[in-house]
Simulated scan of single mutants.
Amino acid sequence: MSTANRDLALKKIELVPGKRVRQKSKLLQYIWFNRYLYLMLAPAVIYYLIFHYAPMYGAVVAFKDFSITKGILGSDWAGFKHFEYLFSQDKFWQVIQNTIIISVYRLIFGFPAPIIVALLLNEVRARLFKRTVQTVIYLPHFISWVILGGILINLLSTDNGVINNIIKAFGGTPIGFMSDETYFRGTLVFSMIWKEFGWNTIIYMAALAGIPPQLYEAAVIDGASRWQRLLHVTIPLIRSTIILILILRLGGIMEAGFEQIFVLYHPGVYSVADIIDTYVYRIGLTEGRFSIAAAVGLFKSAINFALLVLANRLARLMGEQGVY
């Protein structure tokens, strides 16, 4: 190496630490300038660290013969024994099947509902009527499933339920919405949509509010009808929001709604309503088989993660930004 090249290389090496110091200084200045924003973000970060990231250490229980007296560190390693046991059980595959079926039903029938309602409300010009409808459909979201479960039982009971009383008044036979395996999944999906679709419309209403009105004015000048404005202006401009929510929903496909099902189901409908979360609850807390429950939970989380990555990849192939 020549003397000139050596001197140039030494100068570059000397400049690197100084550059790093300047970059670090700029980063600290940026953080300090936005300190109030970071302060507002801190509670959410602390919440996720404590309740979502710290408990991840407990996943090691799935690979141990966990004993309460020995603790997580003191328990003996079991390797993949618990996973092999699960995969050999017909009950495990049944709860997997129930979880997927219920989640797919909720996705097919529940995902489009808030989009349709938001698009309809966006076309309403009477503000009082629009606000009244929004308030009415939002309300069920703030009611817990424990209360809604009691309401559904009073509405759908085969003995004195309001719906079945109407059916009997017209000479029909009472339908076991809550007790018949044929109708129970439909009852779950319908009640979920009833509770959550109004709240989910907030996201799409916010996206619709961000569409520049000049685009609609230009479409009207070009002679576009309402239906054409919907197809060529509204939907394309909220497409990214729809795909983002869809990715998140696909990433949670193994989450079929523990609280709802736990409140509404009973042993008579276990064959169609027992999902992964309720199965984990029974074998983990009721039977005390913590290692098996941890193995089920870890398997579910791995499937959700894989689906999230796949959905995000497909979104990027479609030209959308995705979630990362």
Rank of each mutant, 00 (worst) to 15 (best):
I102R: 00
V124M: 12
S103L: 05
F142A: 00
Y47E: 02
A169K: 12
S157H: 12
P236F: 07
N160S: 14
A9V: 11
V309C: 00
P112Q: 05
H141V: 10
T99H: 03
L188V: 10
Q29W: 14
L139P: 08
R131M: 05
E196F: 03
T132D: 09
T99D: 01
I115M: 14
D76P: 08
A273W: 11
K168C: 12
A224G: 13
G252L: 09
F299L: 06
L148H: 06
V16C: 03
L49K: 01
V21K: 06
I101D: 13
T187L: 03
N98F: 04
F111E: 09
S144K: 04
A306N: 05
L308E: 05
I238G: 00
Y216V: 05
I193L: 02
N122I: 04
I72V: 14
P212T: 01
G284N: 06
F170N: 10
V95L: 03
V21Y: 07
A302T: 15
E196P: 00
V21A: 13
E84A: 15
A9N: 09
F63T: 08
L148T: 13
L41K: 01
L307P: 10
A219G: 06
T132H: 12
K12L: 11
G150H: 11
P140T: 07
Y270W: 06
D90H: 13
L49W: 02
V189R: 01
T241M: 02
L215T: 08
L237T: 02
G223A: 04
R20V: 15
L317D: 06
E123H: 03
W77L: 00
Q97C: 11
A113Y: 00
V104A: 06
V309N: 01
G161R: 05
I211T: 01
S271H: 07
G110P: 08
S271C: 00
Q23K: 12
G110H: 10
G71I: 12
G198N: 02
K70P: 03
D65W: 09
K11H: 10
F109I: 00
A273R: 06
E320V: 01
Q134T: 03
R131A: 11
R20N: 14
A42L: 13
K70L: 07
V117N: 08
D7Q: 12
V60K: 05
I50C: 06
A302H: 10
L248S: 02
V323C: 05
L139W: 13
E259N: 14
M254Y: 02
P55F: 01
Q97S: 15
W32H: 14
L244K: 13
T99M: 09
G288D: 02
Y216F: 04
L15T: 04
V117G: 07
Y279E: 08
P174H: 07
R22W: 14
F305C: 10
A311V: 13
Q94W: 02
F83T: 08
I253E: 09
Q23N: 13
A54P: 10
F190S: 15
P236R: 12
P17T: 07
G176F: 01
L188N: 05
L248R: 02
A315S: 05
P212C: 02
R127E: 15
V95H: 06
Y324E: 08
L250S: 07
T69Q: 03
Q29C: 07
N122S: 10
I137Q: 03
A302Q: 13
F83C: 07
V61C: 01
I13M: 11
L86N: 04
I46V: 15
H52Y: 11
A224I: 03
L156N: 08
V272W: 07
I292V: 12
R185A: 09
T201L: 01
V189Y: 04
